[in-house]
Write a protein that binds this DNA or RNA. Structure first.
Lengths: 342, 342
DNA sequence: GATACTCCTTAAACCGGTTTAAATGGAGGT
DNA sequence: ACCTCCATTTAAACCGGTTTAAGGAGTATC
């Protein structure tokens, strides 16, 4: 239980100065090989590990990246995205000895979350997720001088590289899939319009439908929560001429919608086809299995972490990274429509 | 974009020494009130904020707590528990200026995760979740000298305080609820026996049943994942005399089981009653709504963080904290059994 | 044999706080 | 006027690393 050995202990043991030890441990040139070996051996024998605290102070780096999550537990629990994304991030950070700091933003302004992270110097950079239209966080971070990476591309100029995973192909594939099944009355339950990815999905939905010569029956706005999915679904089913297929902007709303449809006495997919987005774990196991769109959040996390590290390391003009697009996963919740509407 | 003001800048501006500034800012006695005011004013005008890095180094504290998650993305995504738990933790950390460091343990030994967290000095203490029987992490942490708090009570002596949220009342309430509905053939899908909470639930299930003069039809072991829930359910339904009610150790398995039952042509709850555990968000919205057991993970997180901070702050004999027990939430997935078995 | 030039190593400053021991200064006592 | 005493305040060491400028020991050059 003795104190941890410091660099001074290593120096004493190797019979050299602190500076020499530092050079040796950082693989810096200018030391005789014999000396380096001697120092490394001493460090090894003492079981020396660098103190992050001291290193942080002297080189002014935190050796950590940050992720800000809005308080709404929904956001974190919702997205089956985050857990896998975080695992991906860690797969990159761990080997480099970096840590991931989570900041849950207070109810009010999440800006405080970023500000704290920056001012406390706890992280060297942050991930910017769930981009909103004209997202104010971009200027905020630029102003704070905090490096960042955006998850997907913002809708305005940004000084930060973007790591993108295109939702479009998956979304249009869902619509095309339904059209091929013979559906003509297709509705969409979108996410909150403030989010870029929500409107992207809604737009692609409409465009793909138009390309097939069809009009949306309706586009309801949900909030990505199950409760919102239920509400939106009820409104759609209450229409004079209800849809025969509904495309949801995420799995949570889709699964809730599935429940609502069944509760209303409909049989899925015979009376109504349902498709989600995310391919969350349960999507495969609800009855009927949910047709959805799958991305690779783990890889997304790894790519985002790598890119952010390049920015943090001072590289300029770090290029955007484009990941393989999300793809359609067909299950039992979508089928040819049997019911000719009333 | 000028550099952040340091304590020396404040000192210069207030016309005092660095030490005086430190005293004033930490509300330490021994300074004239007038001086304190002068210093605080100067700090305020300069917009001074303490450097965590410097503070960490000089007082040898990280001002952060850690949470280690095993690599399996399932664990994090699964438990609707974690997101809310984390939000609760943050509600305590944020006002104190502390951060939460997430460590995803490598596939192999999660011990490395804790070891890294400790040796890097990134955190002052950790939360110990998903306790296992004779959990080796307890000795590991004691050995590393890293303060900790266990979520629920371990099954052996532990030097750490425990924050507990009793699953028992909720679990037995589920069983009693089913018995009252007239079920006599009740089965359980348990979690992996390595986990304390999995066996606790299984034990309470059996005990409550016995108290009602009944025998379990069967107890299948799942792994808390949806896939595992499906498997276990299929095995139960394939029994010569299948159960009329199944109690699952968590919602994920229950929802998957619900899907499996429906896929097998059964009507829930008429042919089979199903109950889960967690009251995850979708539990309310699947069809039929899932009868389950609800706890308060947010509060759990807050209590755990408070308790851990007391340990970290050097308090001795920090008492265990007992939270209100989980309680039964009855929905439509459980009802009197209509089907007299074959 | 002195000067220059490498090459290697070290002492010391620095990062930005905290903390301890010592110094300063003014009031009160005689 | 001198000494004490106490309340304030300060200088300096320290936390454990990194980094820079200077020092020292050997060869090479002339």
């Amino acid at each position: 239980m003795s104190k941890r050995p410091t660099i001074a202990d290593v120096a004493r043991r190797a019979g050299v100065s602190k500076g020499a030890v530092s050079f040796a441990l950082n693989g810096r040139p200018g030391l005789a090989q014999a000396t380096v070996d001697k120092i490394l051996a001493a460090a090894d024998e003492l079981g020396w590990r660098p103190s992050n605290r001291a290193r942080s102070l002297s080189v002014s780096k935190a050796f950590a990246l940050g992720l800000v999550i809005t308080r709404d537990p929904a956001v974190l629990s919702s997205d089956p995205f985050f857990p896998a994304f975080i695992a991906g991030v860690e797969s990159v950070l761990a080997p480099r000895g970096q840590a991931l700091v989570l900041q849950v933003a207070g109810d009010g302004s999440e800006a405080d979350g970023y500000r704290r992270l920056a001012q406390d110097g706890r992280v060297d950079g942050v991930f910017l997720s769930d981009l909103r239209h004209d997202d104010p966080r971009i200027e905020l971070l630029a102003e704070l001088g905090l490096p960042a990476v955006t998850l997907n591309r913002p809708d305005k100029d940004s000084p930060f590289p973007a790591v993108t995973l295109d939702d479009r192909p998956g979304t249009s594939a869902v619509v095309e899939h339904l059209v091929e099944l013979g559906h003509t009355r297709i509705a969409h339950v979108a996410g909150p319009p403030a989010f870029v990815h929500a409107t992207v999905r809604a737009t692609v939905f409409a465009e793909t439908l138009a390309a097939a010569g069809l009009q949306p029956v309706a586009v309801e706005t949900g909030d990505f929560t199950a409760a919102g999915g239920i509400e939106a679904t009820r409104r759609l089913l209450a229409l004079p001429e209800p849809p025969t297929a509904i495309v949801y902007a995420n799995d949570r709303m889709a699964i809730a919608g599935l429940g609502a449809a069944q509760a209303a006495g409909l049989t899925v997919p015979d009376d109504l086809s349902i498709a989600g987005f995310d391919d969350s774990e349960i999507a495969e196991y609800v009855h009927p299995g949910l047709t959805t769109v799958r991305a690779d959040p783990f890889r997304f996390g790894a790519a985002a972490a790598e890119t952010l590290n390049r920015v943090v390391d001072g590289e300029t003009d770090v290029p955007d990274v484009e990941l393989p697009p999300a793809e359609l996963v067909v299950r039992r919740s979508t089928a040819a429509c049997l019911r000719r509407h009333p």
